[in-house]
């Protein structure tokens, strides 16, 4: 069960009850911006400070180095992220 540490916040466990990282963050009442929830708009962009994520579907939105899209990914390892 990978741990998701949110910078400046406590960590949450990705326990399999949420299909994506975005849903997991929302379940813990963390506000993340989103539009499409399908990886093509880029609105949910967050910083990936440490660890690795896996995309469920290859995202169409531009993702720059050090960023990831929580709406279409799950953590592969423990990760540390920053929500803008």
């Amino acid at each position: 069960m990978p741990n998701v540490k949110i910078s400046g916040n406590s960590a949450i466990a990705f326990d399999g009850t949420a299909p994506t990282l975005l849903t997991a963050l929302e379940q813990h009442k963390l506000q993340v911006n989103f539009h499409c929830r399908q990886g093509y708009c880029g609105a949910c962009r967050c910083k990936l400070l440490q660890g690795e994520v896996q995309y469920l579907n290859e995202p169409l939105a531009f993702v720059r180095k050090g960023e990831f899209l929580p709406c279409c990914s799950i953590p592969l390892t423990d990760i540390e992220i920053e929500i803008p």
Binding site: F34, H35, C36, R37, R64
Partner: peptide
């Protein structure tokens, strides 16, 4: 947020979406 997406620095101090309810309308 659009500026950051293309590698520019944000120019306004606003960091929170003042109308978060709009997101649910924008879900596809």
């Amino acid at each position: 947020s659009r500026m950051q997406a293309i590698g520019l620095k944000p120019i306004f101090s606003t960091t929170q979406n003042p109308i978060p309810w709009i997101n649910t309308w924008l879900v596809s």
